[in-house]
Amino acid sequence: MIQLLKIEWLKIKNYNAFIILSSFFALGVVAVNYVAFSVYKNMISEVNAAKMMSSFSPYDFDRTWHTTSYFAGCILLLPGLLIIMLVTNEFTYRTHRQNIIDGWSRKQFIEVKIVLAIIAALASTALVILTALVFGLASGTSFSLEGFSITGIFFLKALTYNMVALLISVLIRRTGFATGMFFIYMGFENFVSQLLDIWSIKLRRDNTIDLGSMGDYLPMNAADGLLTFPDNPVKSLARGVLPTNYTPVVMVLCAAYLVLFCWWSYNRIIKTDL
């Protein structure tokens, strides 16, 4: 696998879109958190009404892991787009065929792409950990690993986005169509998810049936549902009317979707004409 990854690196290290999208994502993670950090600091110091929240500091240690992960999670589209470009390039240039003609097996071709998606998710997570650490230290609190496990959830979310991107790329093959489909699918799933969430609230309110937030049971929203907006006083007030978060169920579903995406991408490459 190391040898296969070295070859992938030869393919991407001089690819401008890779350098640009990776830089945008890295800057984006820092920027989006810096904006949130600044807004909060200004709000506390300038707006008296917000002083009730002064005990709640989102970038203090033990909260910084969650806050940074949440905001970075909002721009996970970028690594997804990068995966789409890297994989669809192979189809556009027909190098997927040439790699196999030259001596890769179909299995090696798809396995290295799956590992690439995992590495991209790991790199995103490492970036989030580093950013959370910097903002945590900047907030003036002392280092703590409490709540650090949320970065694992961030990894799961990043991996889900990358795997959806990989599957769409393998199924559609053309960069433009695959990118369009990625956005359309996300929009569609979010729309259905909102409807399911409203239905979940009504079910709980009117029939006292608590099935959880059913929108979270959809593929991409499962990962989104695990990484919710950080706890705050307003959110705590709303908890009474919201359906219960069945976190273990959503986690199992999320893992199951990941297995499904891998299996589908793998089979597509192994069994069809290239």
Binding site: K11, N89, Y93, I101
Partner: peptide
């Protein structure tokens, strides 16, 4: 093997 068309990474 050279099959059908020259298949290479255009940006390299």
């Amino acid at each position: 093997t050279f099959l059908e068309t020259p298949n290479f990474y255009h940006y390299l």
